[in-house]
Design a protein around this nucleic acid. Sequence first.
DNA 1: AATGAGATCAACCGCGTAATC
DNA 2: CGATTACGCGGTTGATCTCAT
Length: 281
Amino acid sequence: MGRAPCCEKTGLKRGPWTQEEDELLVEYIKKNGHGSWRSLPKLAGLLRCGKSCRLRWTNYLRPDIKRGPFSPEEEKLVIQLHAILGNRWAAIAAQIPGRTDNEIKNLWNTHLRKRLLSIGIDPQTHEPTAISGPLKRPPASPSTRHMAQWESARLEAEARLSMESSLLLTPSTTNKRINNNNNSDYFLRIWNSEVGNSFRTMKKFACSSPASQASVSGTTMETEQKPEPELKSEGKIGSFYNGITHSSSSDEVEDSSDTALQLFFDFPGQNDMSFLEAHFN
DNA sequence: AATGAGATCAACCGCGTAATC
DNA sequence: CGATTACGCGGTTGATCTCAT
């Protein structure tokens, strides 16, 4: 037996939604919630399949959707999140309030992809496309690179936390440090959030490195004692991407660092990660 | 003004998977 | 526990818009 079709194709309307249909759908959901999408069209008096209704609602009619063009900050966030999450549009959309996965996907495919290509960056791997030199090897898979980025961010955050707790800094010093390096904490939080969790799930299957598996197996980072990673330089740019060394070969780091630095230099100031605060505060 | 190419984006399709029977 | 159903996601399509010629 195959799976049943999502809806009866005969007699159902397709194509662009009319204003009347929109009103019917909004009115119904306002009163009753969407409930079962499959039964919603009949109940709402719509000649559409449930799937179509769900799509129309989630991508267009939902009241919390922010319409209009993406700001430069939002675009940069999409690029940054794509470097970490890959084509997981729903996960990216979850971090950008008011934007839908469809919208972000379209933005990526129509604008950002081309923009990255035009400056010589492979939009899938986030690596320079013009590779030269004798030591170059084929780029790591996107998933490997995303894992490396996650892992390095996580390690840096852990290192900072462990340093802060072990150095017995004075309160004023501690506060200063925490404020200055706030972004690491956000990575820790993301790591412990749904996004991080889904990433760990993916990683469990995709990554065979014993070292990296060991660091993932116990994900209760707050209590775990780990060897402090070597932080080669101060600041988020250096330490974030130096961290890739821990998960991949040095050649790979050479490959990716230019792209990584470009993206990071492009990243707005200290409050970049404020978009995440809403999810954790 | 006509038209063709490229860009944009709403909507559809098919698959994976969680939930339910 | 396997079969079925419903949902959500990412990839793709196609109608419409914009702009250059």
